[in-house]
Amino acid sequence: MSETIATTPEQAVLDQEFLKTLVSLIRAEDTYGAWEGKSDDILLRPFILTKEERRLIPIIGDPDPDTITRMEQFYKAVGLTIEKRTKLMATPLMKMSHEGFGRIVLLTGRLVVLSKHMRDIHRYGFPSVEALATEGTKFVNEAVALIEEHRVVADL
């Protein structure tokens, strides 16, 4: 008789392809082993900002370098997930001003698969892990649909 292991809703969210890619990327960038042995939810915690935490962050001054790094990791994970699905490299390009405004573009070949203006980078984050997964998966699905529709341009 086989035994089924029940998973919690939180574990089901963490098992999503995009979040697995994001956690793998975070672990790959851990050159000193500081995050070795830490759970996935602990690694994803810096991406989560409650409304109260968001309100406490001033938008005056330069954005925190750790916040910019998290944003870069998010979009790199979007690109890597796209690459896993399509076998085509999706390269993120980011240009941010010191005031916290900018733009993210993901390119596959000559095709722009994602273009997003960013504001208030100081307060970059998601209200929950579910929202993080939903946003990342949404970007990936939209990009994959564009690639499938315009495969010739994406292959260039």
Rank of each mutant, 00 (worst) to 15 (best):
W35K: 13
K95Y: 09
L93S: 12
A154V: 01
V13C: 11
R27G: 01
M118D: 13
T134F: 10
Y124W: 11
F126V: 07
T7V: 11
G136S: 04
M1V: 11
K20S: 02
L22R: 01
A34W: 12
K51A: 15
I57V: 14
S128D: 10
I82L: 04
R123H: 09
G125E: 07
L22P: 00
Q16Y: 00
V105R: 12
G33H: 01
T31F: 02
D41T: 08
R110V: 07
E135N: 02
H122E: 00
L88Y: 09
G37R: 07
E148I: 13
W35D: 14
E3H: 13
T81H: 02
R45L: 06
L80G: 09
L93R: 13
A143P: 01
L106R: 02
F18G: 00
V129P: 03
V13I: 15
T4I: 12
I60L: 15
E135P: 00
L56T: 12
S24T: 13
L43P: 04
V113I: 06
L114V: 10
E83G: 06
R45H: 11
G100C: 05
I57D: 06
A34G: 10
V140G: 06
M89F: 09
L111H: 10
R103F: 04
E142V: 01
T69F: 09
Q73E: 09
A6R: 10
F101D: 12
P63G: 07
I5R: 13
L156E: 15
Y32H: 04
Y124K: 03
F126P: 05
I82M: 03
E36A: 14
L88Q: 14
E53W: 07
N141M: 07
D64H: 03
E149D: 15
P58N: 03
K20C: 04
W35H: 15
D66Y: 12
R54A: 08
T137H: 03
F139Q: 03
M118P: 08
A154T: 04
A77R: 01
F101A: 12
R55Y: 10
V140F: 01
P63A: 05
R27C: 01
W35Y: 15
L14M: 05
L93Q: 14
Y75F: 15
D62Q: 10
E148Y: 09
L88R: 14
T134R: 14
K87M: 10
L146H: 07
D64P: 02
L107M: 11
D120G: 11
L132I: 02
A28S: 14
P46L: 03
L14Q: 02
K138I: 09
K138W: 11
K87L: 11
E36V: 15
T21K: 14
R27L: 01
